[in-house]
Design a protein around this nucleic acid. Structure first.
Length: 553
RNA sequence: GGCCCGGUGGUCAAGUGGCCUAAGACACCGCCCUUUCACGGCGGUAACACGAGUUCGAAUCUCGUCCGGGUCACCA
């Protein structure tokens, strides 16, 4: 055994396999020409983040449009930051948003596929096997520096305005001998394994990013950590090993990784792996006091995808919005194919924005309103009760007390409507929006519109109460208002009124607004005639009479 | 600070040297339609960060300046 082999045995005595063993265990995938293998590799350090959902979507749709594979892998190499239930939260969240997973963790507790395990904490032996091989080749070595020592070096470098980091002459243990290492290990000192970088800062590392184009950076020359002192790899090393063994063809990740890509390039080269293609996606930003910044887990509630579910957005609406950010040609496609599943869209990485988009809730709302407007009353009822059951128990009870009544409320201006309203973006608005339709939430609050005096209101409402018939259709319903109008010197015809407004106190439209306020307390509501029908004769008359009383005073 | 990446209306964006008097969408405003509320239709306000260069011609190519973002861990 030579010096390096001795060192390898000393450091990793329990590792008996060689890389060949794993190379054979995970052969090339048998996929059609051009199929892309993509993945998302979240670390279970918290809930599902909007950015993670976004990158997952991009990965998913890239795999889909090439008839490839999209898999998940859990990067749980940092046990300090891990949170309980993190895997479930993220994977189930992905499922909830309709991101289908072909392989890896398909739900919070189960994995499937031939390239596992798909959890890095279960792959320690694999990583160590490759590290041992690197040590034997003189391409990796143990480092015994403590955090304090490293910090001290960094301070010296900063003071002397030298590039910080563990490289070149500052790489203390770079040339450690077997004997030296043995002595320190016998003393029981902990160590990490570092890469003996072959890079040179003067040279360029070049790669073609599929979104940003050609990127040139100084080569990596840092002896970065491969294996932490607990024997678990760092992200960089795990990325190289896993994506090679799992045969990922396209690594699509947040663009905060661009700056460490030279490390990855060197790793793939030294390991003799084929380089995957990289696509770095820009983060979703937010405006904060006039400044654009990345959406932050700590400061922004909408960073957690759960926020959208709680608000009552339909998952498809959020995905649809994310698609408009992901692909600049998506909205055109959507216009041409209004009812097609977004998964049919031919996604092209070249159409992705190079810079980060500001999160735009207006746009989300608009998209969501369109989606909701296409639902029928039964679907609305089903979705809203599902939402309320989880997030608004009071409303859930109100809705389910009389399902048929609730559905008839949602049917207004919706079922059989040639022009559906676009008024609901998210379920948490509905209780307030329809508050006048349910006894439990209705509060009588009549108020005169500015252009009608008390006496006219009184006269109109009194007259109307006499002729009101709950069986009238829309035509008959409005005709009655038009009949009363002239008696109060209100125009029954809108055109007539507009031609000579000075001849009238107002129009039939103004009187229906008055009636609307009497019934609902609002100036804007869905079709009033339908509302009164759903409310029923007694309730409608009650409310009218209340308003009349108000006008008497 | 070093190294990367970016900068077209309030927002998302089209744009690849002449089709640019700069598209479209959201938001906002106005008008029209209308049997109320909506929906819809039509229209409007509003942008190439700045400065040099290359060119007959620049939003587009080059350089500089400014501004924004990312990254410099035994975190991912």
């Amino acid at each position: 055994m030579n010096e390096y082999e001795l060192l390898a045995e000393l450091l990793l005595p329990d590792i008996k396999q060689t890389p060949d063993y794993y190379e054979n265990m995970y052969p090339e995938r048998n996929l059609p020409e051009g199929a892309k293998v993509t993945r998302v590799a979240p670390s279970p350090t918290g809930y599902l983040h909007l950015g993670t959902l976004f990158t997952s979507l991009v990965n998913r749709i890239t795999a889909t449009t090439s008839n490839g594979i999209f898999f998940t892998r859990i990067e749980d190499t940092d046990k300090k930051r891990e949170v309980e239930g993190g895997i479930e939260d993220i994977i189930d969240g992905l499922n909830r948003f309709g991101i289908t997973i072909d392989e890896g963790f398909i739900n919070g507790t189960n994995e499937s596929g031939d390239y596992g395990p798909y959890q890095q904490s279960k792959r320690a032996e694999i990583y160590q096997t490759y590290v041992k091989d690197l040590i034997k080749k003189g391409l990796a070595y143990p480092c015994f520096c403590t955090a304090e020592e490293l910090e001290a070096v960094r301070e010296i470098q900063e003071a002397n305005k030298i590039r910080t980091g563990y490289h070149g002459e500052y790489a203390k243990h770079r040339n450690i001998t077997y004997a030296e290492a043995k002595e320190l290990i016998d003393k029981g000192l902990p160590f990490v394994i570092r890469l003996k970088s072959q890079g040179n800062e003067e040279n360029k590392a070049v790669f073609e990013d599929m979104i940003k184009g050609k990127i040139e950076m100084p080569q990596n020359d840092e002896d970065f950590v491969l294996l932490k002192s607990d024997g678990i790899p760092t992200y960089h090393f795990a990325h190289a090993i896993d994506d090679h063994l799992m045969h990922t063809t396209h690594v699509m990740r947040g663009d905060e990784w661009i700056s460490s890509t030279p490390k990855h390039i060197e790793l793939f080269k030294l390991l003799g792996f084929k380089q995957p293609k990289y696509a770095h996606v820009s983060p979703i930003m937010k405006l904060d006091n006039g400044a654009k910044r990345k959406i932050s887990k700590r400061k922004d509630p909408e960073a957690a995808v759960h926020f959208f579910i709680e608000e009552g957005y339909e998952a498809v609406s959020v995905i649809e919005y994310l698609m408009t950010i992901a692909a600049s040609d998506f909205e055109d496609w959507r216009r041409a194919n209004p009812d097609t599943d977004y998964k049919e869209f031919k996604f092209n990485l070249k159409k992705m924005s190079v810079s980060g988009a500001l999160f735009d809730q207006n746009k989300l709302n608009d998209i969501s309103k369109i989606k909701v407007s296409k639902l029928n009353s039964a679907e609305v009822y089903e979705k809203i009760t599902e939402w309320a059951k989880e997030f608004d128990n009071e409303f859930y009870n109100i809705l389910t007390k009389n399902p048929d009544y609730s559905k008839s409320v949602f049917a207004i201006d919706r079922d059989n409507a040639s022009k559906p309203r676009k008024d609901i973006a998210k379920w948490n608005e509905v209780k307030e929006y329809y508050s006048y339709m349910f006894k439990e939430t209705y509060e009588s609050c009549f108020e005169l519109p500015e252009n009608i005096c008390k006496k006219d209101a009184f006269d109109f409402l009194s007259e109307y109460a006499k002729v009101y018939d709950e069986n009238d259709d829309r035509q008959a319903w409005f005709d009655k208002i038009k009949e009363i109008a002239p008696k109060l010197n209100f125009a029954s015809d809108t055109k007539e009124y507009k031609a000579n407004p000075e001849n009238f106190k107002g129009s039939a439209g103004d009187l229906s607004t008055l009636l609307r306020i009497a019934i609902t307390g609002r100036k804007n509501t869905p079709d009033l005639c339908s509302i009164m029908q759903v409310l029923g004769k007694d309730e409608s008359l009650d409310r009218i009479n209340n308003a009349i009383k108000f006008c008497e005073e």
